[in-house]
């Protein structure tokens, strides 16, 4: 290898091309034909190294030894802003009456929207046609948490954690919950195949 090194015309050329001072081969630094030059450290590289060190010292001093907020503290601040955002939107808190929901029940567009939500969120537990499965049957006249639509809205919003019903209020908007409740109400008496036995109290309607 060292032979080809010596005979390589390109090396002389590259040395001439070099803008830096003539790099010299270090005497005695030859290993299996590999020579070593001793060029200076690139300026930008060493500066980069210094900058990262200075940054790191500053960052560590502020966040660990100084007053920098912990990640949990930052989360608390962000969450506080989030809660304010939620509170400032009255739509999220407005209570709804049975009569208002009956209007939704008559609105076919809203019911279609409710059906779409039902298909994506509810069928895994309540079945494709409300027949029930992991969760109860939604087509009969028996209800565990009350059969009024306002009861259903509340139940869907806060969930039934013990039984595995998630609180959809954090995920769906209020009008979406109204739509899906209206759709569920419209399933009453459809007697789908494989309907689960009634659960809860019989509700006269």
């Amino acid at each position: 290898m060292s032979k080809s090194d010596d005979n390589d015309p390109n090396r002389k050329k590259s040395t001439q091309d070099s803008l830096e001072s003539q790099p010299h081969h270090l005497a005695g630094h030859t290993y299996d034909g590999i020579d070593e030059l001793d060029n200076a450290l690139p300026r930008w590289w060493i500066n980069l190294f210094y900058i990262t060190i200075v940054f790191s010292l500053g960052y560590f001093s502020y966040y660990v030894m100084g007053d920098g907020p912990t990640l949990v503290r930052e989360w608390e601040i962000d969450r506080g802003e989030q809660e304010i955002a939620q509170l400032s939107k009255p739509a999220g808190l407005k209570s709804v009456t049975e009569d208002e929901l009956k209007l939704v029940l008559k609105d076919s567009t809203r019911k279609l929207a409710g059906q779409a939500i039902y298909q994506s969120k509810c069928i895994s537990c309540h079945g494709a046609h409300g027949e029930g499965g992991i969760g109860p049957n939604l087509t009969d006249d028996h209800w565990i948490h009350g059969g009024k639509m306002t009861n259903l809205v509340k139940m869907v919003t806060v969930g039934v954690l013990d039984k595995g019903m998630p609180p959809w209020g954090t995920i769906l908007k209020q009008n979406e919950i109204h739509s899906v409740v209206a759709y569920v109400k419209s399933l009453r008496g459809t007697h789908p195949a494989g309907a689960k036995a009634p659960q809860g109290d019989l509700v006269e309607q």
């Binding site: 590999i34 020579d35 450290l41």
Partner: peptide, 24 residues
């Protein structure tokens, strides 16, 4: 550090740099 100078048939650019970047 072995195979590149071998294949390129060129000397290693900087001994100094290799010391600094190895230890760091």
């Amino acid at each position: 550090y072995y195979f590149l100078p071998k294949a390129a048939e060129k000397p290693v650019y900087s001994y100094r740099l290799s010391i600094i970047h190895f230890w760091s």
